[in-house]
Nucleic acid binder design. Structure first.
Lengths: 147, 147
DNA sequence: CTGCAAGTTGAAGTTCACTTCAGCTCAAGG
DNA sequence: CCTTGAGCTGAAGTGAACTTCAACTTGCAG
């Protein structure tokens, strides 16, 4: 079994066929075609799909995932190194996200309980990209003073 | 300054006015009205908005947030205890989410590099709710064997 | 009292990530 | 051959979470 049908890839990856077709339209994955126009996936596509799912967990948009995947070599099957490089790109992001949630966990109850959730002192929430400089919203958890 | 205008609440919470109106329509927050039909927010609403933002960070949908907030007492300003109870409800969820991301962080590079991302052995991704029983997709990170 | 920033509404529009549908064609077992 | 399940396409639909718009009203500083 050299290549996979869309049904097989869907089953093995846990991603719906419709989503796989969607990903293909969006340039995230690739498929060759049989004489009868059916998709056949190289086993390497499994890794792409897995990467997509992982990146989504980390909170990366399909657009960014597409860009990242586009940086993989087209002419050969990606190597360990290629994947490592790619995953490294989001490691920082993942770590940031984790520490946000950890601060949230550590402070949530106390913070809400004590009323500092009034957002002046505690500054809990804010999307991390629009933090810098802007004073609005709760930021202590997402953007703690000690960093 | 007893109550806040929508502009003030938006500025202090970091949530757009349009989103605040949207939240009100959805029953997430409440406002009283001036004679001229303008919204006035009790300071306690700041805490509600903060709670909403926090819950969103944890990955809770507005629908669920609405349900949680609905369990707060209507007849009085919520106390520490009320908020603690509410936040406790999502603590487990938050912890689950954190451990998913930590496993992701710990295994991502190696896992992708070594090729076990082929999803058979490593089982990386899957939404945690449809994990049980279903064999499809990568699950080791989201649903590690040692638990 | 006036001017203008701030607020109001309902309806429609937007983005993301898919899913569903209708109407086909393809492939493989009996 | 024939049936049946798997696959194909483009277009439209979905749901979450908002945003934008147009047309209008309020509230306060000067």
């Amino acid at each position: 079994m050299e290549s996979l049908t869309i049904g097989e890839l869907a089953a093995r990856s846990g991603v719906a066929q419709s989503a796989l077709r969607f990903y293909e339209r969006e340039g995230l994955i690739h498929a060759s075609r049989t004489g009868g126009n059916q998709r056949r996936y190289d086993r390497a596509e499994l890794r792409r799909v897995a990467f997509i799912k992982i990146a989504q967990q980390v909170g990366v948009s399909l657009e960014e995932i597409r860009e990242a995947l586009a940086s993989l070599p087209e002419n050969r099957t990606p190597t360990k190194g290629d994947w490592s490089r790619l995953s490294a790109r989001w490691r920082h992001r993942l770590e940031e996200r984790i520490s946000v949630l950890e601060r949230l966990r550590d402070q949530l109850t106390g913070c809400i309980g004590c009323g500092c959730l009034s957002l002046q002192r505690c500054k809990l929430v804010n999307p991390s990209d629009r933090l810098a400089g802007r004073g609005a919203g709760p930021q202590m958890v997402l953007n703690p003073p000690g960093e």
